[in-house]
Design a protein around this nucleic acid. Sequence first.
RNA 1: GGGCGGAUAGCUCAGUGGUUAGAGCGCCUGCCUUACAAGCAGGAGGUCAUAGGUUCAAUUCCUAUUCCGCCCA
Length: 870
Amino acid sequence: MEKLLEKVYDYKEIENSLIQRFYSEDILPKFSFPAFSIVIPPPNVTGSLHMGHALNSTIQDFLIRYKLLKGYDSVWFIGTDHAGIATQTVVEKNLLRQGIKRSDISKQEFLQKVWEWKNEYGNIILEQFKRLGLYANISNSRFTMDKYYSVAVRKAFVELYNKGYVYKGKRVVNWCPRCLTSLSDLEVIHKTTKTKLYFVKYRFWDDDGYLVIATTRPETILADTAVAVNPNDERYSKYIGKRVLVPLVNRDVPIIASEDVDIEFGTGVLKITPAHDFNDYKIYQKNKNIGIVNIFNTKAELTLNEIEFNENLLKYNGLERFKLRENVVNDLEKFGLLEKVEDYSSNIGYCYRCDTIIEPYYSDQWFISMKELVKKPLELVEQEKIKFYPQSFKKVVIDWYNNIEDWCVSRQIVWGHRIPVFNCRACHNVWASEEDENRCLKCGSKDVFQEEDVLDTWFSSALWPFAVMYWPYSDFEKYRKCYYPTDVLTTAREIVFLWVSRMIVMSVFFLDEIPFKDVIIHAVILAPSGKRMSKSLGTGIDPLELIDKYGADAVRMGLIIQTAESQDVKFSIEKIEMARNFINKLWNAVRYLQLKKEKKVQNEFGDELVSLINNWLFDNLFDLTDNLDIFAKEYRFFDYSMSLYHFVWNVLCDWYIEYSKFFDYVQIEDAVNTVLRVVLLYLHPIAPFVTSYIYERMFGEDIIKQDVIKFMNYIKNKFVVDRTRSQYVQDFVDSVKEIRPFVNEILQLTFQDTVKIKIDFKNAEFPKDFEELFYSFTKTSRGYEPKSFMVKTKLGNIIIYIDEKSSDKYKELLSRKVAELKNNTQKIEKLLSNRDFIDKADKNVIKNYMENSKKLKEMIEINERILKEL
RNA sequence: GGGCGGAUAGCUCAGUGGUUAGAGCGCCUGCCUUACAAGCAGGAGGUCAUAGGUUCAAUUCCUAUUCCGCCCA
């Protein structure tokens, strides 16, 4: 049954042979208990696999596979997001390359083009995910605009609408003049930007005096409807009620009082442009009589209309906002209205998709009022019904809920879920409906039309955890029993508000239940320079290239061991190499053990020694697996990986396999097979390819079908560990490590093959065979008859007398050691003579110090004697 | 402006109220020892950012400062 591993670990071959099995149509929910479920954060259909996806998916796949091995019905719901603005932008650019402008074709034709694009390219990202070795069913993936999902979105919107949580209103919103759509607050990226502060004179209407106002956006002067000062500002309070002329426009506007005016900023006088500034809009809402003037069209070009017509503006008509700014500044200067210009840096909002500067824009939009909806989620997070890892995000989410603003959900684009609100031209009835309507519910008129806007992408993603389980169809109840709420959500920090907190809101509203129990917020992997990884900046590192070069297993493990906790890390290729080397090491260890079967050992050791060492091995193994289970439970993937790394490399390979070279295969076969099984099983969630491959080679079985819990119970009964006996072996290990530096130095000085020593096993229970092992492990040999020279190992029960070869080097080594020992002893003595310490410190701590002090003194004495006689 | 996190070896990062603070990479010495040179054995390298405080004891807890990063407005 067992097949020998190939000489060289060829990850490409292995990945090719297994990838279809991992990503297979046969992987279906079993609807059995215990169940475990995760929903993937759906990648954008426009996306390509980046480092964030790679880490995020690795974590999820780890959990899915770990639970699978633990006997769970472990299901991963995967799929993609239609990503409204992002996708539309990509398709627009595509068409432009073919010479087709968006404006050349109708909305319907364009929509058709987007669907064509989606059908052709929309699954690329899922195909790329494959390469990571994910265990999921690709044919079962969902899409936020597929047939069933669309039903869920409409149902959700209509229900919110009918319960009064949706309203339409004319508001100043974030507007992207390139994407030609509104954006939610969360889709705006604020960046400190160098700009200028213009000090502009506003003349009084009735005399020659003037006020100076500082503004970063002089072009919006044209839409000023008031000037405001803080009533507590002694400099200006006397002017409240007077009127000033808006420069260039010569519209006369009032000077109003507002507590919102920052006395410190600029001159302390604020111009009010309600239609093009958020703060000004707030002030306007409290002073509606000042009026609101919109001077821009959707592309942020100055556009006069009948209502807001002003002949002084005619010459600017059609100018784009920054061109307009130039013109306005020039004219202000020309008319002597510009007092000065200063350099300034201010926080400016940019579109998160296309990086265009956001224009606050006064327009009709749809909103969801959030204050009420957020109440229950807030409580649930506070009560830790949903737990965040790391915990600090609990507070972050709570703060966000507490300061929630209404959510602008309408987008003026084509690609998305059209808002299911219908209007009747005849009777002006407005209603929301899950079905397409062509007749007014109220008056029966056929003159009805649906809203043109589509919903924010994040509205549909907020429904993801239950929509992927076919809510609101009856099937959902079947899924709900096993898989809802889902167990854990893993995500990057940047979408905690955009997505995570809104999923909670929606799940609580529609199902009265949390969508997931745990939220893991993982690290952000930065470029090695510490900058963000970004394709456009050229700082991105392609995970697929890494997989090509190092193999998927190495990439997975390498990512995990460089991202402990959620602290951001600079990407280090060394960690990927470390993982690759580790897998290679494991491969070779297995291969060695397989080859060993064929070989006979010359002078094999007795079974007594073998059992002692096996006992030590299993002691370490059980210690390891106990820890691994804790680490997995606490999502400490770094600790999980590193403890496996150290067990395989520093326990199994460095020591056990070295011991095994003195044993015959039959003596260790049982232990070896068992330990390898356990290692492969526990490593499988990190490195699925190589472990599956080796497992099948060795045991002829599919690793994913194994039951770890059963197996562990079985072997814990079979190999009962004796801690005391295990300590003998550990003493041996420590003694070898202690003596090696001396031997190494001596050998290098004397060019001998071995150093002669004499070993004194103080502990009679040590098997005599250990002596032979010791010689071999330390490159020493029997035959030294000690006078008084020796080195005593520090912790162990073994005393080694070493042939001194009376060299200066040796003397130096010993003196250094003695000095070190003395130094430590002094520190401890000082502590022990401290009354406060004796009175207050923990008794065990004191005891340990005292014992150690004794040991140290003994060693100093011995080594000093040696030194004297050298 | 408000909030959060970080500063530990040359580099990337772990870790800890208590004896000698770790890993990988890099560096130095010696080894192709029949599983592995992607390896083996050994070594050098740290006032744990700075200043105070709490404590018998601080790299670890607290406060302030500096620098870096992130989030929100």
